[in-house]
Write a protein that binds this DNA or RNA. Structure first.
Lengths: 153, 153
DNA sequence: TATTGTTATACTCTATAACTATA
DNA sequence: TATAGTTATAGAGTATAACAATA
């Protein structure tokens, strides 16, 4: 990849800078998401559960945890909150009766569509407002490639 | 920005996806940094302080906190750790005697160059290994633009 | 024997408020 | 009056280990 010493040094600095920038932007994005979602009485993670459920259909708590990097013991409390608010329901998995089958309720689906997504989209749009459509596509493609290529071991 | 209903919906999905990807990649990057730096007995944040000091020269604890999004009461403990290990020194600011002037020691500078940077660079390189040089430059430029344009109010 | 959900618990992280010394 | 650093402390978040039910 590099073609000489100067190049390698530049690549090293570039790589490091990229990491800092990435962490900065992600931190600020999540901070704003948390702030915006607070008006709906939800956290970023709880919103994440709803989004994953809508995209993937009913899942066990364990599987939700795997997809969102949340420990299963923590996931219990997250689902408790969402269940108490009537946004998800704990159904039983019929083939494996140890596991729950967490599913979106109608209320959850409605809240997601009418309030949560618009709020989250607005935050996102505000953060990337300065990017051209082309840069947005680039960024999205590159990040998707990173997520794809990383071995999450 | 969008030019029609379908376009707007696509843009919304794109923006949202970008946010999730960003958070995922940043979380995984920091997780690996923490793991790698543990061998040196340091945390990601403490490494951050050293990097900022090397780049900017001596700073007050408050200013370090501003640049790294760390509260001043938390920064006290971070600097304590680094000072105990002899990596930074608390000098007094001569014009404002309330403030410290935190500066890298020779040991800190050496550790940074010989151990910390190589370790961090290796992690970074591993995460972005799948990207072409062109994509790396793109990603870096776009992220830099985001950091620049965001109003951190 | 392994796995899902659960609970209790301990640990870390962080921020808040109050204090001191300087400005 | 405001600010830099400090301290104590309270709160939130998280993970660990054990237990029950099921595989």
């Amino acid at each position: 990849m590099g073609s000489g010493r100067g190049r390698a040094a530049a690549t090293g600095m570039l790589a490091e800078t990229t990491g800092w920038l990435l962490a900065d932007v992600a931190r600020e994005l999540i901070r704003r998401m948390e702030k915006a979602l607070r008006a709906e009485g939800l956290r970023w993670r709880e919103y994440g559960v709803l989004v994953v459920l809508e995209a993937a259909g009913p899942l066990s708590q364990q599987e939700l945890g795997r997809r969102l990097a949340i420990d299963r013991s923590t996931m219990v409390h997250v689902i408790d909150v969402l269940e108490d608010r009537g946004l998800v329901a704990r159904g039983r998995d019929r083939v494996d009766r140890r596991a729950y089958s967490i599913e979106l309720t109608d209320l959850g689906r409605t809240l997601l569509a009418d309030a949560l997504r618009p709020v989250a989209d607005a935050v996102q749009e505000h953060v990337i407002a300065g990017l051209t459509g082309e840069d947005r596509a680039h960024l999205n493609r590159i990040l998707a490639q990173l997520v794809e290529c990383i071995d999450w071991a």
